[in-house]
Simulated assay, not measured.
Amino acid sequence: MTDIDWNAGTWTTPPSSVDVSDDGMLVVAVEGSDAWRTTSYGFIHDTEHALLAPVGQDTAVEVSFRLDFSAQFDQAGIFLKVDDATWIKAGVERSDGENGLGAVVTRGVSDWSLSPVPGWHGRLVTIRASRSGDAVTIRARVDDEPWRLVRVAPLDPAALVTAGPMCCAPSRSGFAVLFTAWRTGPADTSLHPDG
């Protein structure tokens, strides 16, 4: 994997502050920031803080961050965008008192999946989006543990897609995320590990 420069992307919505150092990129989210379209809640939120750069076919993008969430719906991970109504966010989100690993896949309306990861707090999380054929495969891991499959979602192979680190703070001010890596490389060779 090859590092992507923190200055290579463009923010969908500028965060409250960004500080790039040798440790990575510290992002402070704006209170009320979020990404969602309609389903169940009836609203459209498109104020996520996503730093995006082009990602081609047969390419993977990884984002790593330190997991230190405390408020309802604190979230960080990776964001892939085709247009305002076609996007995916995947990562960890704090919901109902626990951290959950999941994804929101949006094609006109949003679809959310979430699974608890109680042992991940305070550790380094990496989210990987691998674009191949007519799909994007989302995987995640904590520290150097094995990759977990999070989601396989349809993605038009001809679409122009941008991707990169994302965070949101729907319910509070002062939420900060330390992103430690943003990388790109070849797409995963298969959906399932050998053996």
Rank of each mutant, 00 (worst) to 15 (best):
M1S: 15
T2F: 11
D3W: 09
W6S: 02
N7W: 05
G9R: 03
S16K: 14
D19M: 13
D22W: 12
G24F: 07
L26M: 11
L26Q: 11
V27Q: 07
A29C: 12
A29S: 13
V30N: 14
V30A: 10
E31I: 06
E31R: 11
E31N: 14
D34F: 06
R37H: 12
T39D: 09
F43C: 14
F43S: 13
H45W: 14
D46P: 09
E48R: 05
H49Q: 08
H49W: 05
A50V: 01
L51Y: 01
L52F: 03
A53S: 12
A53G: 10
V55H: 04
Q57K: 11
D58E: 13
D58I: 04
A60P: 04
A60F: 07
E62T: 08
V63G: 01
R66Y: 12
L67K: 01
A71H: 12
F73C: 10
F73L: 14
Q75S: 06
A76S: 07
G77A: 04
I78A: 08
F79N: 09
K81I: 06
V82I: 10
D83H: 02
D83A: 03
T86S: 13
T86L: 10
W87L: 01
I88W: 01
K89E: 08
R94A: 08
R94Y: 10
S95F: 14
E98Q: 15
N99M: 04
N99V: 12
G100Q: 15
A103V: 11
A103E: 03
V105T: 05
V105M: 09
R107F: 09
R107H: 12
V109G: 14
V109F: 15
V109I: 13
V109Q: 15
V109L: 14
S110N: 02
S110Y: 04
D111M: 09
W112G: 06
L114V: 13
P118L: 08
G119C: 08
G119L: 07
W120V: 15
L124P: 07
V125N: 05
T126P: 02
T126R: 05
I127Q: 04
R128P: 08
A129D: 00
A129Q: 02
S130P: 00
R131E: 05
G133Y: 01
D134A: 15
T137R: 11
A140P: 02
V142N: 01
P146Y: 08
R148A: 15
L149A: 13
L149D: 10
R151P: 02
V152Y: 07
A153N: 10
D156T: 05
A159F: 05
L160W: 10
V161M: 04
T162K: 11
G164I: 00
G164Q: 05
G164D: 02
C168G: 08
A169Q: 05
P170A: 05
S171R: 14
S171I: 04
S173R: 11
G174A: 10
A176F: 02
A176K: 06
L178F: 01
T180K: 07
R183V: 08
G185N: 02
G185L: 03
A187M: 07
D188F: 11
H192Y: 15
G195H: 12
